[in-house]
Design a protein around this nucleic acid. Structure first.
Lengths: 345, 345
DNA sequence: TTGTACGCGTTATCAT
DNA sequence: ATGATAACGCGTACAA
């Protein structure tokens, strides 16, 4: 591919003049600039960003790491980040960690070698992340997304999971529910999920209710009725559930309906995240909506500020309690049909 | 950040030797190599990829452009691409075009300046894409994803939309449906959507049935009952629908249920794409599943071959007709309740 | 206004 | 086995 030197030669000027025609056009006479542009066009010249990056010691690239793109939460956030970054002249290097610590390490190392101007990461657990502690040695600015700003020492953009979860729980209590459970993926995998459980417990206790132990699903984004069935009958049968993410909630609602139960008549189900699709399913998903696009944009703009050397000042973004058909007021009801241990076996 | 020269000095060797210690370790004596590694560690040396890229004239980066990440089809494909690329030592620069032609241009130009080793694109319409015709002038290999391999002149990985749509239609016909309609976003926006409509028409005609005109929704991924209501009663009331994508289908099913209709009893609804969530909603989505992960992986591996200079040989990937609860056999029924033009107004 | 010359951090060729 | 040196393509301080 043609380089500046060949353009300069064709235009009959020195390489420096050709370079100036592009970087500082007003420093070169109109006529010669035209000559240069013309030559560039003829040779299909295209500035080499790699050389620019080396010379200017900045890549205008931001390294992004999310756990997975199979979860629309991250995909929707990334979508907003990409648009925002591009609007500011930045490109995104996108990687997925799959919640794997060793992968997280490799990815960050790779990005640092690539000399990205900044890192925007979502890690499994910010407080006990080897990557993050190691990153403190580096000068490359780093920003977390979704991870609660605990003692990781890095700024973070996201909502207050604690408060959001409390609000969700209180909402269900307001509707008369007393037997409320929380459903999560395996092992309370992420720090967000843990905070959400804590918020739930606090809200329950504040209302004089007993929090139930966490109900763990075998998979992070797919519900399984078997794990749930024991909690749906008997004296302490739950009348409402909060799921730690929307995919879990939607698939749970599907499973319940498939088992002949009605949501919300037999059981109210609430989600967490606010993915777009939740508005369109039936029953529509009642959920705590995180402003995913706002989060993505805020992450980019904050990161750009950090790159400029500013110290970020971050206040949690506002969550929205999105009402939906999957949650209803508590109604007295008999033991629901079709949910005996036999029918779900 | 420390560079090779400072490492060399600290280790008491020349820059060349230091470089060799990393690139060709066996060409340097064990003891000196140790010295060099030690020095590198002390200085927290980290190879500069930008310099390598300039020197080696290869970035090990692939430029990826998808229409949007808000649609799980692309997100799920990208997820697979990222994993596959990373496994081969490549990074991904990810961009979203939002189906905007001018954005497509800017993005591709930007990526070429970045000297990506290859481009993997999904454009709105491969046949009439300004970007693609211009790309023929370039030497950077380019591969399409999802776009049918028409006369764009570029290889493409994806399923045979035509055949897949025919198969879907035939499936409905097999179940006894005769009044089958197809629902799409506005303007038959993408070449895929058009092919799917053509496939539907062909299958209908082959069965001696009359294809219905396309039913257009105001938005690409969100259904609207008003546009549909006219087709649901009267002599030619439809008994089955095929949507051009899964999001449309899922939201349509939601709307129908909300209007008091039963899917599939009153109306069978079929999707297209096979996003993961479709399996978990109720009724589960009957759809034509594109192997999104396979497509993503195949795209990367094909691209790597193209970068090696090989000419790609591409056969369409197999689609799978995923059965689901949203489609049932035709049953005689009266005009469904609650769908009069009044009730949806 | 334009040209000369250096450096960004590597790899690779040629000597030694 | 190691060292000196020339690229890779560009931006810019300095000189003219």
């Amino acid at each position: 591919m043609a380089d500046l030197l060949s353009v300069a030669k064709l235009a009959g000027v020195s390489r420096a003049t050709a370079a100036r025609a592009f970087s500082t056009p007003d420093l070169v006479r109109d006529t010669t600039r035209e000559k240069i542009f013309h030559a560039a066009q003829q040779l299909a010249f295209r500035p080499n960003k790699v050389a620019q990056q080396l010379r200017l010691q900045t890549t205008q690239m931001i390294g992004v790491m999310v756990p997975s793109l199979d979860n629309p939460v991250f995909a929707e956030q990334l979508q907003a980040m990409e648009v925002a970054a591009r609007a500011c002249g930045y490109s995104l290097i996108v990687t997925t960690s799959e919640y794997d610590a060793s992968r997280e390490n490799e990815i960050v190392e790779e990005m640092l070698r690539q000399r990205v101007d900044g890192l925007v990461l979502t890690v499994a657990e910010a407080d006990k992340s080897a990557v993050l502690t190691q990153l403190h040695q580096e000068t490359t600015p780093c920003l977390l997304v979704y991870n609660p700003p605990g003692n990781s020492g890095f700024p973070s953009v996201g909502v207050d999971n604690h408060a959001a979860s409390e609000a969700a729980t209180r909402y269900l209590i307001t509707l008369g529910h007393q037997q409320i459970g929380m459903v999560a993926g395996p092992l309370l995998q992420s720090d967000r999920a843990r905070q959400r459980y804590e918020g739930y417990c606090l809200a329950m206790q504040a209302a004089g209710l007993a929090p139930s132990p966490l109900i763990e699903m075998p998979r992070h984004t797919q519900a399984d009725l078997k794990s749930l069935a024991p909690h749906l009958h008997g004296d302490n049968a739950l009348s409402a559930l909060i799921c730690t993410n929307d995919l879990l909630a939607i698939s749970l609602i599907g499973e319940l309906q498939r088992a002949g139960l009605s949501v919300p008549n037999d059981l109210s189900v609430m989600g967490f995240d606010g993915i777009a699709l939740g508005k369109y399913v039936y029953p529509s998903l009642c959920t705590v909506e995180q402003p995913r696009a706002d989060i993505g944009r805020a992450a980019i703009h904050t990161m750009l500020n950090m790159i400029q050397g500013e110290r970020p000042v971050l206040t949690p973004l506002p969550y929205v309690l999105r009402k939906g058909e999957s949650v209803g007021a508590l109604t007295t009801r008999k033991t629901p049909p079709g949910i005996s241990s036999r029918s779900v076996a």
